[in-house]
């Protein structure tokens, strides 16, 4: 099947097998290896990206479902060398060690902050429940997300993530927020 997906601001048209998962399309066809695969039961969240402004586990979306859509990965967050506030906060708060869960964790954190610009600790923990980290014990991740919240105006994300009309729809994919 022929699909067109805009990923991190670039439009790509490709023939894909119907069974191809979005994450495999991103990694193998488009070279977007910043997004990773950590499990095969959609538990770990390492592959989380934004599809049309909403976080999804890209292992749970078929590439063909993204046809015509706009995807933002962790590689598309920084602008002109300027880190996204959540990226900066992860660094400042030592919210990563091996860094394998980090792309998904950052993408989910941005989604969480879009829904709740000023989450308390409990809300952050709840919002990240679908993303596993084996290194940090989550404490510094929680700290980073709350730190980022303080640096972001309500609901702010990079322009690439703003959906036309700005309306967020609930898809039930990725995260429990």
């Amino acid at each position: 099947m022929r699909i067109t997906v805009t990923v991190d601001g670039t439009s790509y048209t490709d023939d894909v097998e119907p069974r191809t998962l979005l994450v495999h399309h991103l990694r193998e066809k488009l070279g977007k290896t910043g997004t990773v695969v950590g499990c095969d039961t959609s538990n770990c969240g390492a592959c989380t990206v934004h599809l049309n402004g909403q976080s999804v586990k890209s292992c749970s979306v078929l590439a063909v479902q993204a046809d015509g859509g706009e995807v933002t990965t962790v590689e598309g967050l920084a602008r002109d060398g300027q880190l996204h506030p959540v990226q900066q906060a992860f660094r400042d708060n030592h919210a990563l060690q091996c860094g394998f869960c980090t792309p998904g964790m950052i993408m989910q954190s941005i989604d969480l902050l879009a829904d709740n610009p000023n989450p308390d600790e409990e809300a952050v923990r709840e919002g990240l429940e679908g993303n596993l980290c084996r290194c940090t014990g989550y404490q510094n991740i929680v700290r980073a997300v709350r730190d980022a919240a303080g640096h972001m105006r309500p609901g702010a994300g990079p322009e690439a993530e703003q959906v036309a009309g700005g309306e967020r729809t609930t898809t039930g994919v990725g995260g429990d927020s």
Binding site: T33, G34, A78, Q87, P103, I106
Partner: peptide, 19 residues
């Protein structure tokens, strides 16, 4: 010190074996 390692890891410029 914040870590030297982080900048690559938070921007997806990673070199996992599977990449």
């Amino acid at each position: 010190r914040v870590r030297k390692e982080d900048e690559r890891l938070i921007t997806g410029r990673t070199r996992w074996t599977d990449n």
